[in-house]
Design a protein around this nucleic acid. Structure first.
Length: 643
RNA sequence: GCCGGAGUAGCUCAGGGGUAGAGCAGCUCACUCGUAAUGAGCAGGUCCGGGGUUCGAAUCCCCGCUCCGGCUCCA
């Protein structure tokens, strides 16, 4: 008997029944066989050593592919668990998957791991790798498996709850064994531990069993593993680059903002340069909203608790809100966690006509949310922040067109800030929801249509919508490939009903509008944090708080430098003259350290000729003797905002 | 909120039961300089806060605050 295997190039090859993945790979080429970590048959990953069970589409998985790395990391997790069980008597182990760029495994050793432990574990892992133990796959009945893992409560729980999902299917489970170590696992794995060429343990941290904070807290060890030392080194360098870009570090170095402990966790103060940066961003936001038919409103930071009862926030969001304040010994007030009820009240301030719709109310609205103490993270997760928030009130018939324009507007804004790669999630109707099925269907298809028209790649997050309506979340990729969620566009069928919103139709009947909640940058704080990391602090000139640093060569050039600075400022450029008693080299170094887009040096020759020495950020060398007017034109063009 | 780590000068960090340290930044003086750190001097501390142990605490213990890494959370 033979089987037919279709290779990725479409060719069909016949092999003896019982041939393994490795046999087939070797028949293609020795180098391929050497690089192979597993094979794929009709999309299913199989160990190299397994006889191919049937004909089908065949593919060799090599180590430098995402599938290949996944297998390497999964095997690394096993080897780590083996090392931990070797080293710690009575250790129990839970789950250990491959994750993006690495792997982890959760253990219980009765205490946390410390740095020395990680080193010992890494050394033990190296020994296991050197021993080049084979991974072998076995199938066992559930009773057998329960016997094998009798002293492992987490494994026992996994086996007992097995329902085809976690470790194989039916009434059997698969395990992988190398020497004395056995773990439940669906596989596949590397042929042997010796194939793990590059790995590193990164950190340990607490993690709840089954992700449930009411259950055991385990100790998780994170590690990373790659197909080569070189790939590992590159990854470690990527981590170092991310650390260099950390907005908390750069925010301090560039003197943008700080988090004084006196204020409390998650509350930032903006220093002059950061304040200027914010203002530039906020001005852009107001300007573009005004030119896109939004109307700017302003609302207070607190309101009676009753408002949040009407909106439903106190029912479903109370944990995220700052606690109440009792005024006049009877009325409770709350800091606002969202702006929507205020905008709704503006809508309700008088009767509305269909002629006014869509009504787009926009506010840079500052909100306060009680984020749990462990989750606060610089500007990216703060307790007080300002949203570029808008609520659009529209007739249901207008929703499609409105969403289309809104998505275009969103992408325009994100592109203006230098983001190019977008991905979206479309979250659809959950089990519990308000509104009519028909309305949901219309809104969902309008959202999908908007995504299609915009040509945005998206995934459907089925059932992930809020109970009040479906939504689109837009993610961007930053300069080093990280994904950030920025914009959110949410349709809301609930709040118009909670607040009994109405408008007069053309037939003079009373109709209920639909709301769209949307934030493009999300929060100004978070957006600045992401921009800092995206640009590593070297903002495009239009965003740079200081666009031009003017460096007088000696004291006698200060007067001329000020004159040049005035001319630049008149052209709308943000200039600082560095009058410090330092050498030219030092002043230039300072300007470069602060990532100033343009450095102008003026000395005797410039005073005489009405010129400057011009050095743009990133240029190797300066250009000397440039006329001031020419410089102004060049810099003004360079620093022009996108709109 | 939970687990672990940390908090010493503005910043980065060393030290560690017996007089509190360095580099950078700051200030003063000299230098007046043409594209990534001129030199000298000076000043700077509630060693996160509170309590405890001790003859003596920055150091050891307890509580709190803040930060860091995760978990959980993020309608």
């Amino acid at each position: 008997m033979t089987i037919q295997l279709t290779f990725p190039d479409g060719s069909v090859h016949e092999h003896e029944e019982g041939a393994t993945g490795l046999d087939v790979a070797a028949s293609i080429g020795a180098r391929l066989a050497k690089a192979a970590v597993a094979v794929k048959l009709d999309g299913d990953l199989l160990d190299l050593s397994r006889p191919l069970p049937r004909s089908g589409a065949f593919e060799v998985v090599t180590e430098s592919t995402e599938d290949g790395r996944h297998i390497i990391r999964h095997s690394a997790a096993h080897i780590m668990a083996q090392a931990v069980l070797d080293l710690f008597d009575g250790a129990t182990f839970a789950i250990g998957p491959a994750i993006t760029d690495g792997f982890y495994y959760d253990f219980n050793i009765g205490r946390p791991f410390d740095a020395d432990d990680l080193e010992r574990i890494e050394q033990r892992m190296a020994e296991i790798v050197r021993a080049d133990q084979s991974f072998s796959r076995e199938e066992h009945s559930i009773p057998d498996a329960l016997g094998m893992f009798a002293d492992q409560p987490y494994k026992t729980e996994i086996i007992e709850s097995v329902d085809a999902s976690e470790v194989g299917g039916g009434d059997a489970v698969t395990v992988y064994r190398n020497e004395n170590f056995v773990d439940l696992c669906r596989g596949p794995h590397l042929p042997s531990t010796g194939r793990l060429k590059a790995m590193k343990l990164l950190r340990s941290a607490g993690a709840y069993w089954r992700g449930d904070e009411n259950r055991d807290q385990l100790q998780r060890i994170y590690g990373t593993a790659w197909e080569s030392k070189k790939a590992l080194d590159e990854y470690v360098e990527r981590l170092a680059e991310a650390e260099r870009r950390d907005h908390r570090r750069l925010g301090n170095e560039l003197d943008l903002f700080s988090f004084p402990p006196e204020l409390g966790s998650g509350l930032a103060v903006w220093h002059p340069k950061g304040g200027l940066l914010r203002t530039i961003i906020e001005d852009y936001s107001r300007r573009t909203h005004l030119s896109h038919d939004y109307e700017i409103v302003a609302t207070p930071h607190v309101a009676k608790a009753h408002l949040w009862e009407t909106s439903g926030h106190l029912d479903f969001y109370a944990e995220g809100m700052f606690p109440g304040m009792i005024l006049d010994e009877q009325t409770e007030y709350r800091m606002k966690p969202m702006n929507c009820p205020f905008h709704i009240l503006i809508y309700k301030s008088r009767g509305r006509s269909y002629r006014e719709l869509p009504l787009r109310l926009f506010e840079l609205g500052t909100v306060y949310r009680y984020e749990r103490s462990g989750v606060v993270h610089g500007l990216l997760r703060a307790r007080g922040f300002t949203q570029d928030d808008s609520h659009i009130f529209a007739m249901e018939s207008q929703i499609g067109n409105e969403l289309q324009n809104l998505l275009d507007f969103t992408l325009m804004v994100l592109r203006d800030f230098g983001f190019e790669d977008f991905e979206a999630d479309l979250s659809t109707k959950p089990d519990k929801y308000v509104g009519e099925d028909e309305s949901w269907e219309k809104a969902e298809s309008a959202l999908r249509q908007a995504l299609e028209t915009a040509g945005l790649p998206y995934e459907i997050a089925a059932g992930e919508g809020a109970f009040y309506g479906p939504k689109i979340d837009v993610h961007v990729r930053d300069a080093i490939g990280r994904r950030w969620q920025l914009s959110t566009l949410q349709v809301d069928f609930g709040q118009p009903a909670n607040f009994d919103l109405l408008y007069a139709s053309g037939d003079n009947t009373r109709e209920r509008p639909v709301m769209i909640h949307r934030a493009l940058m999300g929060s100004i704080e978070r957006f600045v944090g992401i921009l800092v990391e995206h640009y590593a602090g070297a903002f495009p000139p239009w965003l740079s708080p200081v666009q031009v640093a003017l460096v007088p060569v000696a004291d006698r050039h200060i007067e001329y430098a000020r004159k040049v600075a005035d001319s630049l400022a008149e052209a709308g450029l943000r200039v600082e003259v560095d009058e410090a008693d330092d050498t030219v080299g030092e002043k230039i170094r300072r300007a470069i350290t602060f990532k100033t887009p343009a450095v102008l040096v003026v000395g005797d020759q410039d005073v005489e000729n009405g010129t400057v020495g011009l050095r743009l950020r990133g240029d190797e060398h300066e250009r000397r003797g440039i006329e001031v007017d020419t410089t102004i034109q060049e810099l003004a063009a360079l620093a022009a905002p996108p709109r």
